[in-house]
Design a protein around this nucleic acid. Structure first.
Lengths: 181, 207
DNA sequence: GCTTTAAAAAGTAAAAT
DNA sequence: ATTTTACTTTCGAAAGC
């Protein structure tokens, strides 16, 4: 009844190094880097393994996106910071990493009649003219789901894998409760 | 007190000016879209309610007018797409959509997603198709809805494909290109929709 | 609100073959 | 006419306009 397989598709995490960074120096030392201060204050650093992209800021804070597991996300951040430390030895070894958002996909198994779901389910937005998915906002856990006619689902906004899974399970239970699935 | 009174006059003057501007903007957009007076009145009602609830703050009058008109069209079952609204107003599609969501939420306006059926009369008349073809198209759309073939699909694409099929079935054939043009979708979309409809519904004819 | 990043879902669009 | 690329929606953090 509550068995739903979730696949983590993307993780966004942030870290604070506690020391300001000279982005210009980093930008000049590496090739696989994008940096346009006028366009965006962060320097973009991409890793092939794990396949991620890091946004590094002058304040010493950074954001990592693209990882498919929490472990990979942390590993990518450590690799990125190690790279930065080769240019600035003062960057600390220990720093905090916070998972900010987890995007996961799942399949409810049966197709959904989105028109019916839009009428029966609460807190939904469904505008097929603009997007094929129905937006469903859950309060607990505080996540947002995109429901598709195929029965496939995307859950985003979760801070933990547990919440992402819980979000999908609660959605499935609510749909069953309303006889919409 | 005198000053307070003067400010009030100044403010109400500005309020009236803004309302006059909004209504002229509404008239301009409405006439460009060829909308009947009843829809304009419905839109002005939405706009006035937005003003009463102080929903204009931080938003442009043009944007609120465009969103009010978009909502009124849907409520009156003579829908215009966000693209069409954006074209006649000087508001981007994104802004119209965002303001529409805001207004419907704040004013508790609950509108079901646009039905492809509501696009049939307009598209059909622009194509010069008969009432029989329209009825057949609506019949096809209702079958599609019952079989879950409209979930997630754009209403204009479904309406266009249904009209195309109906025109062929009743011997008033229109080209996919002509139907696509009035519906504002591509021929590929019509093709994809009619493939799905003819494959999954018993429409009795091989196209 | 915008800018930048990544990723899935499914529909639609535009450009390439 | 089919394939590829790309944009729509959702989320969050970062610094600054």
């Amino acid at each position: 009844m509550t068995d739903v397989d979730i696949k983590i598709e993307n993780i966004v995490a942030s870290a604070t190094l506690g020391k300001s960074i000279d982005l210009q120096t980093v930008a000049e030392a590496l090739e696989n880097v994008d940096f346009n201060r006028e366009q965006f204050p962060g320097l973009v650093y991409k890793l092939k393994e794990p396949k991620t992209a890091a946004l590094i800021f002058g304040s010493g804070k950074l954001v990592c996106t693209g990882a498919k597991s929490i472990e990979d996300s942390k590993r990518a951040i450590k690799l990125t910071v190690d790279m930065m430390r080769t240019m600035d030895p003062d960057i600390p070894e220990e720093f905090e990493i916070k998972i900010q958002n987890i995007v996961a996909s799942a399949n409810l198994g049966k197709p959904l009649n989105l028109e019916a779901v839009a009428l029966g389910l609460e807190n939904t937005e469904y505008e097929p003219e603009q997007f094929p998915g129905l937006v469903y906002r859950l309060d607990d856990p505080k996540v947002v789901l995109l429901l598709f006619g195929s029965g496939k689902v995307v859950c985003t906004g979760a801070k933990s894998a547990e919440d992402a899974k819980l979000g999908v399970e609660k959605t499935k239970a609510r749909l069953a409760e309303l006889d919409l699935i | 007190r005198l000053r307070k009174w003067q400010r009030k006059i100044r403010i109400s003057g500005a309020t009236e000016r803004n309302l006059a501007f909004a209504l002229s903007e509404l008239d301009r957009d409405s006439s460009r879209l060829g909308l009947p007076r009843s829809v304009r009145e419905a839109a002005s009602m939405v706009y006035r309610r937005a003003v009463e609830n102080k929903l204009i703050r931080g938003r442009s009058i043009e944007g609120v007018v465009a969103a009010s008109l978009y909502a009124a069209c849907r409520k009156c079952n003579v829908p215009r797409t966000l693209d069409e609204i954006a074209e006649v107003s000087r508001v981007s599609k994104k802004e119209v959509g965002r303001t529409y969501r805001f207004l419907t939420r704040e004013l508790n306006i609950k509108l079901p997603p646009t039905s492809p059926v509501d696009y049939v009369p307009r598209f059909a008349s622009e194509l010069g198709l008969s009432g029989e073809v329209q009825s057949k198209a609506i019949e096809i759309i209702e079958m599609a809805m019952e079989n879950g073939l409209t979930s997630g699909r754009g209403p204009t694409g479904v309406a266009a494909a249904a009209l195309y099929i109906a025109s062929v079935l009743l011997g008033e054939r229109k080209t996919q290109r002509d139907v696509a043009e009035v519906a504002g979708v591509t021929e590929v979309t019509i093709r994809n929709r009619y493939k799905e409809l003819t494959e999954q519904l018993d429409l009795g004819v091989t196209l």
